[in-house]
Amino acid sequence: MLEINPGLVIWTIITFLVLLVLLKKFAWKPLLDALEKREERIRSSIERAEKSAQEAEQLVLENRKKIEQAEIKSAQILREARELGEKIKSEIIDRAHHQARHMLDQAKAEIEREKEAALLRLRSEVADLAILAAKKVVGDSLNEDLHRKLIDSYLKDLPKN
């Protein structure tokens, strides 16, 4: 069983060498190349994925910062607007108050003036009436001018209201 058969050794070597040459060209080279290419592709795609994940993270951070800034800004704008509104409101109210007071004053003055005028008219009316009545009572003994003088002096002695 342990005897060497040189023919078999030669056949083994020939077969092996033929197989080696054949496979080296048609099997191992394409297989190893494909393997290497795929590994390279996987490595690069992992790198790319890592890079884009990093970018995304950075973007998220940036966005968060931007949102924070925007929130701060919007709060500021709101506060300013409210302040402005408050100011305008108080101004309007003030002005309204002022105007109202002004109008009231004007009205009061008007009323006073009207009252004065009315009193004046009333006074002359009353004098006329008194003269008319006196004329009826006294007849025409007294002339109109004397009467008017008398009444005026009397009316002056009356209290104002």
């Binding site: 058969n5 023919g7 078999l8 030669i10 056949w11 083994t12 077969t15 092996f16 033929v18 197989l19 054949l22 496979l23 048609f26 099997a27 191992w28 394409p30 297989l31 494909a34």
Partner: peptide, 25 residues
């Protein structure tokens, strides 16, 4: 150099290896 059983199966093995690996490649 007479072909024996073991040479025959040597060749069959070589043939199988060649077919399988070349198809795989």
């Amino acid at each position: 150099l007479t072909i024996t059983r073991h040479v025959f199966f040597l060749w069959i093995s070589a043939f199988i290896v060649a077919i399988v690996t070349i198809v795989a490649a």
